[in-house]
Design a protein around this nucleic acid. Sequence first.
DNA 1: TATTGTTATACTCTATAACTATA
DNA 2: TATAGTTATAGAGTATAACAATA
Lengths: 144, 144
Amino acid sequence: MSSDLEAPPAVTRRLGYLLKHAQLRLAELAEPRYAPLGITGRQLALLTLFGDGPALSQQDGAARLGIDRTTMVALVDELEAGGLVRREVAPGDRRKRLVALTAEGERVRAAGEEVTRQAEAQLLEPLADAEQFRDALGRVVRGE
Amino acid sequence: MSSDLEAPPAVTRRLGYLLKHAQLRLAELAEPRYAPLGITGRQLALLTLFGDGPALSQQDGAARLGIDRTTMVALVDELEAGGLVRREVAPGDRRKRLVALTAEGERVRAAGEEVTRQAEAQLLEPLADAEQFRDALGRVVRGE
DNA sequence: TATTGTTATACTCTATAACTATA
DNA sequence: TATAGTTATAGAGTATAACAATA
């Protein structure tokens, strides 16, 4: 649902409006590319998180994404049902479940990250310096 | 709920992650400033929309914000209950309801826009050129 | 017939509370 | 006692479908 009428400048210059609609535009560009892979953008974010670096428990992963651990349970359930990740009991602490990508999960992650690059490039196409914009956004998020 | 653990670079450089967390940071900075005015950021967005330029019907306003007309009904209900807006039958078309700010609504709008400027300035403080960033975000949203 | 506003309803997303198994 | 995962449940937020008034 993209708006046909344009909002007045007093609205379109609000950062809240701009950030929300930038997200909507990104989703419009990216989700159709994820669909053939059988995943959503959110699921790809998890594959990226758990496929990168040392193995993480569900709770560690949730903290890093800023989501609740109960939300993480449902998300991992989805990926596990699709055969993209496995839950493994952590060697040192049998309460923890490390989330590991399957071979198929790794394949989907690589393909997903490639189409993400395409969608992001398309979104940032109007900008002369896309990397500068990404860096600025990063500084704003980190508050530094 | 701000994450304590940091996500790995593979995640934090994704535009989806950055846009989401920029919104969260903005909300953390702005909502406490709106609270004394008795409004939320979303309600202020409506006051800004309907307080700017020629009078809009509910449906026109919804289209400009990119939300559903049924959602607009509930939002206008809230503002009307708070005495911030009035519904007025449109002169030329008695099906339409023009949304007009009351004197109190106008006062809250002005105060809200002032604290919004403060919150946005705080969010963009890390940047050397905040207006350049806002312009870039605008071009991305408009796709131009 | 089509459109505007409205209501009722359902769906998605996410969090809180309570349980279990481990520590 | 405290923590990790899980389940059940509830609360936002938003959309779809159906209806009344008006065009």
